[in-house]
Design a protein around this nucleic acid. Structure first.
Length: 873
DNA sequence: ATTATCACG
DNA sequence: ACGTACGTGATAATC
């Protein structure tokens, strides 16, 4: 019987945990998130693998034998953030209490300690070694007796690598990982490798020849002249890279297995947890090491597993029994298993849960006919995840169904669209994770169980934040509106679209030839790297900006070089058409539904940090409009069969009007109340000229300042935008604030409130946490401060149009019109309508959009309509 | 998986 | 002195 010896890479796991969890703090203000995450992972490891002995290895200092060999080793690493470093000593304290030995050594990395200990254990025999790490390099240690548990993402997604699993993934045995690194390098450790050789080429070479040395021994057999050259030129560098990637397995560290037992010190550990407010760590520890004399009322493991195993219900009788339980459940929950795409989405199965008991029911079974109707039963109050999909498959809008995902997003928008497992790990970290190796329907059942438990916790939080109304009256009603918009889709004239795609394709071929001639040879124009080499190395144009990987070739740079060389203009033109063809013409064509002839975008309600919607597959919120060449794309969006016009209704200056309302600045409120040109008025104030003397240039500058204010102004940003000096920009801002003191005090007030509370809110109570506002790092803190200025404005605008959408939707429906909302583009709604309904629909939109809230300034909309989206602007 | 670029509000 | 405009998504290239 072999001993199971677990070795943890403390440094890498702590780092993973740090980035996986939000910055939690103890009651006394110390950061604890990394330790909390480490603790969760440790508990899981011990519970699952029950190791006989354990050691945690740490990196000690940056200076190691590797930096002796190569000074730049890991030279590209930023210093770890203060919030992280402060937790390293905390983890030691934690391990001391838990009774787990740890090791660190001068001149060696944690990897080398792990490599050495695992080798000694192999030599001694009788050990099964499990290495837990978030560092891929350790995979080279995998052998018959040594496996690696690698944290793929965050800390909960762990994969076990044994010899077979490694071979499956890489195609060769583990030790050759160092040869791979020798060839391809490792950007995260700043290991150079052979430039131009990536994973693909490196793997090919190793499979063909064996080890790195074999590649060089057979260098003549390498195919490709370029590749051979690169390999020969960089042989020394490849060999050094291999050495750097090789874990030292004979480090001067003693192997003393008798000292590696876990010896929990309850008192010490509890004191630690209490001091740092780590309740779940304490609970988990207690579960693993029950104090003597405490009576255990826990369920046996077998029984626990039984509990999570979902019953598959097919027959009528079982269904009746489970239906009864659901009716009595305090939080009945379901998770749908969907297949297909909107507007053809189908419900294949349901995971159901009473909170205590989970079940699966498949569509088409006898049980389905008994259980599905419960979802429409108004006496049940259901919870699900992804309510929009439920609506897509015909779920009743009248049914009482909550969406945990939506509630969780509102409580913390930074998590975005979190799946059940993510929500569990955030909100119920001590509950068992969803089993990984079940089929989709079983996961749905288990998911339903979790959803049932999540809802009370998350909704309670929402109530604590005073966000119930936001959820009930704004976001939840919007779900049905978005579902319908997605199902509606928008008609795209496929013939005109593909004709244009073809024409643009020809144009691109011509441009390509002209560019090759001017460059004197063909190259990949789409590659910024190759383009940079052609422009700046070969043609000798003056390089001005650099990116971290080479020369910058963006539009700003190219524009400034327009008249230096004729190739530049051609490249700009090539870029313009290439963008239009690949992003719009080709890909939208592919997304036209063959049955409906329309494109059905997805409106994501749980993505942005500010409360805006986003659109994807395809993104219909970024269809070109500013440039003539791009605007053509809009011509292909037309009213579909049975409709005559596309109509667009957009808010005029909504963000600046919100700024006026929130700040109560006299100038702004006045200007908007009298419907003045706000940018001209700003110019007049800031530059001290009468309104009639405001030139278009002055207006342009004032407009830039107004935008700057909305984004969270900085003199640097404004100077970049206007192409003026930072000093001048600072001067503009100064006189702006003198003339608009209301705006100034609003911004100052918002930022200082963010510092005090750690979050900001919109007019309707939407919340955004800004943990970085306390950062000691200037850049991060400044970013958070700009977010603090921008979020209440952008977020309030998002709130308003969301309310307006639901109101317009309702009003159109109540009026019995066939007109319908197709798209939302942040401050604009696109509607499909008919000749007869044209005036009625305009009236409804004005009522819904302009009257939905009453601010200190009016909120007028502009309406345009036409035979396509380009005309409706 | 990340980076550079560019489309929108 | 630090070193940035706010919010998104898609594509192609490169790692």
């Amino acid at each position: 019987m072999s001993q199971r010896f677990m070795i943890l890479d403390g440094s890498s796991l702590l780092f993973r945990a740090f980035y996986a969890l939000p910055l939690l703090t103890s009651p006394t203000g110390e950061y604890t998130n990394a330790v909390v995450g480490f603790s969760n992972m440790l508990q899981k490891m011990i519970a699952e693998y029950k190791p006989d002995c354990m050691v945690v290895a740490f990196d000690k200092s940056r200076h190691t034998f590797r930096t002796e060999m190569f000074a730049d080793y890991k030279g590209n690493r930023d210093k770890a953030p203060e919030e992280f470093s402060a937790q390293v000593p905390l983890l030691r304290e934690f391990l001391e209490g838990w009774g787990i030995p740890f090791l660190e050594m001068d001149n060696y990395e944690a990897d080398d300690i792990i490599g050495t200990l695992s080798k000694r254990a192999e030599e001694a025999g009788g050990y099964e070694v499990l290495i837990v790490t978030g560092d891929r390099d350790a995979l080279q240690l995998v052998s018959k007796d040594v496996n690696v548990l690698y944290t793929r993402k965050g800390i909960s997604d762990i994969v076990r690598y044994d010899e077979a699993a490694f071979k499956e993934k890489y195609g060769f045995e583990p030790i050759r990982l160092i040869d791979l690194k020798g060839l391809m390098g490792d950007s995260s450790d700043n290991i150079p490798g052979v430039p131009g050789v990536g994973e693909k080429t490196a793997t090919k070479l190793l499979l063909q020849f064996g080890f790195l040395e074999d590649v060089y021994a057979h260098i003549d057999e390498v195919s490709g002249k370029k590749l051979k050259e690169k390999l020969t030129e960089n042989q020394a560098q490849a060999e050094l890279s291999k050495k750097l990637a090789t874990i030292e397995r004979n480090a001067p560290v003693e192997f003393t297995p008798e000292e590696y037992a876990i010896t929990p010190d309850h008192e010490r550990f509890f004191a630690f947890c209490d001091k740092y407010g780590m309740r779940s760590a304490r609970q988990g520890f207690e579960k693993l090491y029950p104090a003597q004399g405490t009576l255990l009322l826990e369920l046996g493991t077998e029984e626990t597993e039984q509990k999570h195993k979902a019953a598959r219900i097919a027959g009528r009788n079982e269904a009746e029994v489970f239906a009864d339980k659901l009716r009595k459940a305090s939080v009945p929950a379901f998770c749908g298993v969907y297949e297909g795409k909107v507007p053809h989405l189908k419900l294949r199965a349901l995971g159901l849960s009473t909170g205590d008991e989970n079940a699966v029911v498949e569509s088409g079974s006898e049980a389905w006919d008994i259980l599905y109707p419960l979802l429409e039963d108004a006496s049940l109050h259901w919870v699900t995840i992804d309510l929009k999909s439920f609506y897509h498959v015909g779920g009743s809008r009248e049914a009482h169904v909550e969406d945990v995902q939506l509630a969780a997003y509102l409580a913390d928008p930074s998590i975005g669209t979190a799946d059940v497992e993510q929500l569990r790990s955030i909100w119920l970290p001590s509950a068992p994770a969803i089993s990984a190796d079940e089929d989709e329907t079983e996961k749905a059942a288990e998911g339903a169980g979790i959803v049932s438990k999540l809802w009370p916790v998350i909704f309670e939080k929402l109530k604590g934040y005073d966000m119930e109304k936001l959820y009930n009256d704004m976001e939840k009603p919007l779900v049905a509106v978005l579902a319908e918009m997605e199902e509606n889709g928008i008609y795209v004239n496929r013939d005109r679209l593909s004709a244009q795609a073809e024409a643009v394709g020809k144009k691109l071929l011509d441009l390509e030839q002209e560019i090759y001639t001017l460059a004197k040879h063909p190259f990949n124009i789409n590659s910024p790297k190759q383009l940079g080499e052609v422009l700046f190395d070969e043609l000798g144009l003056p390089a001005q900006k650099k990116t971290k990987t080479g020369y910058s070739t963006n539009a700003e740079v190219l524009n400034s070089l327009r008249y230096v060389h004729p190739i530049v203009e051609k490249i700009l033109e090539y870029r313009l058409w290439m963008k239009l063809k690949s992003t719009y013409l080709d890909s939208i064509g592919e997304l036209i539904d063959s049955e409906t002839k329309r494109v059905h975008t997805t409106f994501n309600q749980m993505v942005t940090a500010t409360g805006r919607l986003s659109s994807s597959d395809p993104n219909l919120q970024n269809i070109p409009v500013r440039k003539e060449e791009g605007r053509i794309i809009r011509e292909f969006f037309e009213p579909g069969e049975g409709y005559d016009y596309l109509l667009s209704a957009d808010y005029s200056q909504i963000e600046l009007r919100i700024l006026a309302h929130l700040s109560q600045d006299k100038n702004f409120v006045n200007a908007f109340t009298h419907d003045e040109d706000i940018h001209a008025r700003t110019a007049s104030e800031v530059f001290g000229v009468p309104m009639e003397d405001v030139t278009s240039e002055l207006r342009r500058r004032a407009k830039a300042v107004n935008f700057g204010i909305v984004y969270g102004i900085s003199d640097y940003g404004l100077s970049q935008d206007l192409g003026i000096s930072r000093k001048d920009a600072a001067g503009y801002i100064k006189s702006y604030f003198e003339k608009c003191p209301g705006v100034k005090s609003f911004i100052d007030g918002t930022v200082s409130e963010a510092h005090e509370k750690g979050y900001v809110t919109t007019l309707f109570g939407r919340r955004r946490d800004l943990p970085q506002i306390h950062s000691k790092n200037f850049t991060q803190r400044s970013l958070a401060e700009r977010m603090a200025m921008n979020t209440p404005i952008q977020g309030t605008a998002a709130d308003i149009i969301k309310l307006a959408m639901a109101a317009a939707y309702r009003a159109i429906k109540d009026a019995g019109l066939k007109s319908r909302i197709l798209l939302q583009v942040h401050d604009e709604l696109v509607i499909e309508t008919t000749e007869e309904e044209l005036s009625k629909v305009q009236e409804i939109l004005r009522g819904a959009m302009e009257k939905i809230v009453s601010l200190s300034v009016p909120l007028p909309i502009d309406i345009h309509y036409g035979k396509n989206w380009a005309e409706a602007k």
